[in-house]
Amino acid sequence: MTTATLRLAAPTPFERFLQQFAVGLSRHVERRIAARAERREIALDMLREQQARRHDPRAVDHALAQLGLPRR
């Protein structure tokens, strides 16, 4: 083989830069996806917790009484 064919087999500096850029961009996107999934999971947990709470029917009457307003 000649040296000309060997040089063509190696990536150019610009190609190496593009590869590094692509790896960095992929890492950034993966971090964003993971953060979004974590936020979504936290939001779903909070929603489940809110929905699981038992609402006391007397709580509204009690709150109105504390404000000095007539009960329902």
Results as ranks from 00 to 15, higher is better:
M1F: 04
T2R: 02
T2E: 02
T3L: 05
T3M: 03
A4F: 02
A4C: 01
A4K: 00
T5H: 06
T5Q: 04
T5R: 07
L6S: 03
L6R: 12
R7Y: 04
L8N: 03
L8G: 04
L8D: 08
A9T: 11
A10V: 12
P11N: 04
P11S: 06
P11A: 10
T12N: 06
P13E: 14
P13Q: 10
P13H: 12
P13L: 12
F14C: 01
F14K: 05
F14Q: 13
R16G: 01
R16W: 00
F17G: 01
F17E: 06
Q19Y: 00
Q20V: 07
Q20G: 05
Q20A: 08
F21Q: 05
A22N: 06
A22M: 02
V23P: 00
L25H: 05
R27N: 03
H28L: 15
V29H: 07
V29M: 07
E30H: 09
E30T: 14
R31I: 04
R31T: 10
R32K: 14
R32M: 11
R32V: 11
R32G: 11
I33A: 14
A34K: 10
A35W: 12
R36G: 09
R36V: 13
A37E: 11
A37D: 13
A37Q: 08
A37T: 05
A37K: 12
A37H: 07
A37N: 10
E38C: 01
R39Q: 14
R40S: 15
R40E: 14
E41L: 10
E41Y: 05
I42V: 13
I42H: 08
I42L: 07
I42P: 00
I42Y: 06
I42D: 09
A43G: 06
L44E: 15
L44V: 10
L44A: 14
L44P: 01
D45A: 14
D45K: 08
M46D: 12
M46T: 12
M46L: 15
L47E: 15
R48P: 02
R48T: 14
E49T: 11
E49P: 00
Q50Y: 00
A52T: 06
R53L: 15
R54A: 14
R54M: 13
H55Y: 07
H55C: 09
D56A: 07
D56H: 06
D56S: 13
P57D: 04
P57H: 01
P57E: 01
A59G: 00
A59Q: 12
V60K: 06
V60S: 00
V60Q: 04
H62T: 09
H62Q: 11
H62F: 04
H62K: 10
A63D: 08
A63V: 08
A63N: 04
L64D: 00
L64C: 02
L64M: 07
L64I: 01
L64S: 02
Q66M: 06
Q66S: 03
L67I: 00
G68L: 06
G68V: 03
L69R: 13
P70S: 07
R71G: 07
R71C: 02
R71N: 05
